[in-house]
Design a protein around this nucleic acid. Structure first.
Length: 958
RNA sequence: GCCUGGGUGGUGGAACUGGUAGACACGCAGGACUUAAAAUCCUGUUCCCGUCAAAGGAGUGCGGGUUCGAUUCCCGCCCCAGGUACCA
């Protein structure tokens, strides 16, 4: 029989499902290996050909590891909360759960058809209550924790309460809100319960506070910074504005340093680590206080509570003697009190103007200096120099202290500002060149800089910080760019937050009541009063009954049998909540008592290999590391970093095909099309054509005429009897007619061909356009492979004879090659090697069972269906292929018989040799000269010179 | 601007720690089998010169350098992709 991929693939997919071939056990004498894919959001469009790229790679690796004797966990699930299902619900009224269910069914069918070795018994869905129960549970743990800087880890809030009770707020070093209260133990104990809770909220790792958020009116929700691109929402492209709202936040900043340091311990792509480093944005610098000069000038009306100094953050404290003015952000709180009567007009005008400027305008505007003088002055703490205080929108209120010391000689922005407003520019380093622009050099020695004159950068920085600390005018300080993550969305289709409100303060619901189920609503839009959709839920209230209320000394519910009713939190969790811990759920997916059992977590520990796209660099991958570190602090997770090795698969772009339509004299399109080569000899306009009616860039004219009624009578100017299309690399999208569906490919060539072809396309990590042009080659290869096992009449025919040395050489060459390739994730070169091996064995007419059996095993991770079929045909039990031992490479078969070759360098002929590694360096020369291979080349002559490099490669000049 | 990758035939891409550049595949050209098509097989295919061939020359974005030898290492530039940005 010829290679009938359809029957074979159907048969084995059914077999694997029925026999649960890939079910992983939570205990095993084998070493564990956890291969994880980033789980998909099940969108309505289904999979296109780019999605499975990473899944194929991880599947190959998972199957390879099984053959290598590992107990492999390779699960799959769905990140099924999300915006598209909700948008669809708003438009149609259909419950997002139903849309999601339908989409998941499509995804599942498409995934199954590719023959993945997932353990589906562990499937998770973030939108399923038995999953989000634990997302809510982790939220509660975060709420019940604070970050102790002294221990450098999160602790239960109880430890903080105990400290307050015993010692008051003294001695606490925590990551918390800016405005925490100072109190004694006695004061704490007499504090009303509500005030205590209010104070504790300032320390909790998830907390409520008023923050400026990115509000997207069109989506009716708040977006995280990484969901906003250039002032528009990443999804949908709607305008985003700044708005103040009470919001749930996560104190991820507490983990900034650990998130940064952890990067050095994990095997991730360098660009991705770099993105996270930039996102965290650590800068080491100093806070310096500049005394305000003569407060008499300040505006009496507003100056009542003003401090008498301005604090700035700088990373270049060494340049402080070059500071010739201060600049505050227009929003800085001292601006009002610093503005003199004379400057009041100018300042107010500038503030109005700055506010009006949208994000976009600020971006578009060239770097033109703009600002206004407050009329006040400050004193440089180190030389008592009197310098003016300005405001300008190049200083950001949200970073550092919202105020900077301007050093025009060293900072380009300050330089431009100084030039524009004719402020002094003082050089402070001997080698500085500041004629045209600022020179931020750290080399050279300081000048015009008081007591640091003559020092270098390092000496000056140390000396200055010491001096400032001694004077009480400053201190060393580390700043991070990263902000706390906002954790609420005014949306329906997300996890409800397990919190109710009493007297305006949030309290956790009883843990026994988890999961807090998402209630039904009549519409999925915000209410008329602007409340989130959950406000529409009927009778969705928290009932505090007397027994539960006992724990709370002021609960009103304790008095009678009737429960007291409170409002739930109405916002839901953001999209990243469920994905921030889901890899643990796979370890023990059906557990009702814990997010995963202790034993399961102790066994699987962490993800050994994680494959997914780099677009999650500063979202999912950062939040996951954060939650993992928190769970570790809580003793729930065994290791600091969840994903040991990570690989980014490249994006698969679309490859559009174009036809060239002839244009008549009036510029109108005719119905005549010109083939690619001749397109410039005519007036033409390019037109996208469906890639599915084009093969190898040759247009199927018949299908083209049927494609659209208007082309029914189309005419063509051909080349060599064919119509050749042009192509362009673009996003894969319906409107370019370049979407290729894996179902079509699988139908036509089979899943094994598709799997191998996607790998063959190029390096896994590289982005590349999808191009079906080469797929025939892979298909031919599989057919050739099939034929090795059959005679001319397609009868199965293998021989039990002993393999020849040649055959063994071919086999062991590929065993070694593929093993090396898989270990370094170079799947594309493996596919090539398979082709070479099969070509060689075909030439040798090899049908030896011993050779073919091993070949089936090593090919099976790539093309599992055909290999299972051949494996059973070879007489093995069905289903055993996935767990047999990987063939062992035997170097004996690979002794090189050709190791000398002549090369010509600069007109001299040299012999290049590969010397066996086993040879002692001292013996190399004798070995070389004694070798028959070499004698053949030098032909009795004495070589002029023998050069040995690294004991391995030898040049002989002849 | 800064950070991180990358630049090799008509195309996708090979080349492990510096050792015969272009493996493998597509495409193309020619041929075999066939009434024909499909399928399959064979030959050729970096460029230039050369009647086939032999021989020769050039060649991994550009210009230098180190080396017996550089796609690989170093210096300076150009271009492309991704990330990021008045972050002090």
């Amino acid at each position: 029989m010829d290679y009938q991929f359809k029957d074979i693939e159907k048969k084995w997919q059914k077999f694997w499902a029925e026999n649960q071939t890939f079910k992983a056990e939570n205990n095993s004498s084998k070493p564990k290996y956890y291969v994880l894919d980033m789980f998909p959001y099940p969108s309505g469009a289904g999979l296109h050909v780019g999605h499975p790229l990473g899944y194929i790679a991880s599947d190959i690796f998972a199957r390879y590891k099984r053959l290598k004797g590992f107990n492999v966990l390779h699960p799959m699930g769905y990140d099924s909360f999300g915006l598209p299902a909700e948008q669809y619900a708003i438009q149609t009224g259909q419950h997002p759960a139903i849309t999601t269910e339908t989409n998941i069914a499509t995804y599942r069918r498409q995934l199954d058809q590719l023959g993945f070795s997932f353990d589906w018994s562990r499937e998770v869905r973030t939108s399923s209550p038995d999953f989000y129960k634990w997302t809510q549970w982790i939220f509660m743990q975060l709420f019940n924790s604070w970050y102790n800087n002294l221990a450098d880890k999160a602790e239960r809030i109880d430890t903080l309460i105990t400290h307050f009770e015993e010692k008051g707020s003294a001695g606490i070093n925590a990551v918390c809100d800016d405005e925490v209260s100072v109190f004694s133990a006695g004061e704490w104990r007499t504090m009303p319960y509500r005030d205590q809770q209010k104070e504790l909220l300032k320390y909790r790792l998830t907390y409520l506070r008023e923050s400026t958020v990115n509000w997207c009116a069109a989506l009716g929700t708040v977006l995280a910074n990484d969901e906003v691109k250039d002032g528009f929402s990443e999804r949908g492209g709607f305008p985003v504005e700044q708005k103040k709202m009470m919001q749930w936040s996560m104190r991820i900043t507490a983990y900034a340093e650990r998130l940064l340091n952890g990067l050095d311990t994990i095997d991730w792509p360098e660009p991705l680590k770099e993105m996270q480093r930039n996102w965290i944005g650590k800068s080491v610098g100093a806070l310096v206080k500049f005394t305000i000069y003569d407060l008499r000038f300040t505006n009496e009306a507003q100056g009542g509570s003003a401090d008498d100094f301005i604090e700035v953050f700088t990373t270049r404290v060494d340049t402080i003697f070059g500071a010739t003015f201060l600049v505050l952000a227009p929003e800085h709180e001292l601006v009002g009190s610093l503005t003199t009567a004379a400057q009041k007009n100018a300042i107010e005008k500038y503030i109005v103007q700055a506010k009006k400027k949208s994000e976009l305008e600020r971006m578009a505007e060239a770097r033109v200096a703009s600002g206004a003088f407050t009329g006040s002055y400050a004193l440089n703490p180190l030389n008592d120099e009197k310098i003016p205080i300005w405001i300008a929108d190049y200083v950001l209120a949200g970073y550092g202290t919202g105020a900077v010391m301007a050093v025009p000689s060293g900072d380009q922005r300050d330089y431009l500002f100084a030039k524009h407003y004719k402020l002094p520019i003082i050089p402070i380093i001997d080698i500085q060149n500041i004629e045209k622009e600022a020179d931020p050099t750290k080399d050279g020695r300081y000048i015009n800089s008081g007591f640091i004159d003559g020092m270098n950068y390092k000496e000056a920085t140390t000396a200055l910080i010491a001096k400032l600390e001694e004077m009480g005018a400053g201190k060393g300080k580390i700043n991070y760019r990263m902000r706390d993550a906002i954790f609420g969305r005014q949306r329906y289709w997300g996890e409800p937050v397990p919190v109710y409100f009493k007297d305006g303060l949030p309290y956790l619901i009883d843990e026994k009541e988890l999961p807090l189920l998402l209630p039904d609503v009549d519409k999925y839009l915000p209410t008329e009063s602007g409340e989130p959709p959950l406000a529409r839920a009927k009778d969705w209230k928290y009932r505090l009954t007397s027994d539960k209320a006992l724990a709370d000394p002021i609960a009103d519910g304790s008095k009678g049998a009737e429960p007291v009713v409170y409002e739930y939190e109405l916002s839901t969790m953001p999209g990243w909540a469920g994905s921030s811990w889901y890899w643990y759920r796979y370890m023990d997916a059906r557990n009702d008592d814990a997010f995963a059992s202790e034993q399961a977590i102790a066994y699987w520990k962490d993800v050994d290999l994680y494959i997914g796209g780099s677009e999650h660099a500063t979202g999912h991958l950062l939040y996951s590391r954060f939650w993992n570190k928190f769970l570790k602090d809580m003793g729930q997770a065994p290791v600091e970093e969840p994903f040991k090795k990570l690989i980014n698969q490249g994006m698969i772009q679309g490859r559009s095909n174009l036809v060239y339509r002839l244009i008549d004299d009036l510029g109108r399109g005719t119905n005549t099309f010109v083939s690619h080569t001749f397109r410039n000899q005519y007036q033409t306009s390019p037109l996208h054509v469906d890639v599915n009616i084009v093969e190898n860039d040759v247009l199927d004219i018949k299908k083209f005429k049927e494609w659209r009624p208007e082309f029914e009578n189309a005419e063509f100017i051909l080349e060599n009897g064919k119509y050749i299309c042009g192509f362009e690399v673009e996003k894969m999208s319906k409107r370019y007619y370049n979407v290729v569906n894996p179902d079509d490919i699988a139908n036509r060539y089979g899943a094994d061909t598709l799997r191998m072809y996607e790998m063959f396309l190029g390096p896994l990590e590289q982005s590349k356009p999808w191009n079906t042009n080469g797929i025939e080659g892979v298909f031919k290869f599989l057919r050739k492979f099939w034929k090795l096992f059959h005679d001319d009449k397609f009868n199965f025919n293998v021989s039990g004879e002993e393999p020849t040395r040649q055959e063994l050489k071919s086999l062991h060459k590929i065993i070694r090659k593929v093993e090396e390739d898989v270990e370094r994730f170079s799947f594309n070169t493996s596919v090539s090697s398979f082709m070479i091996a099969v070509n060689e064995l075909t030439d040798l007419k090899c049908n030896k069972r011993a050779i073919l059996g091993d070949l089936v095993i090593i090919l099976s991770p790539y093309a599992p269906h055909i290999c299972e079929e051949l494996w059973t045909m070879l007489g093995n039990e069905a289903g055993t292929l996935s767990y047999v031992a990987y063939p062992k490479f035997n170097p004996m078969y690979l002794v090189e018989d050709e190791f000398a070759y002549p090369i010509s360098v600069n007109g001299k002929t040299r012999l290049n040799l590969n010397i066996p590694l086993s040879l002692e360096p001292a013996a190399v020369e004798a070995f070389v000269l004694g070798s028959a291979e070499v004698q053949k080349y030098i032909d009795h002559q004495t070589p002029k010179k023998v050069i040995v490099v690294k004991g391995r490669i030898v040049n002989i000049v002849i």
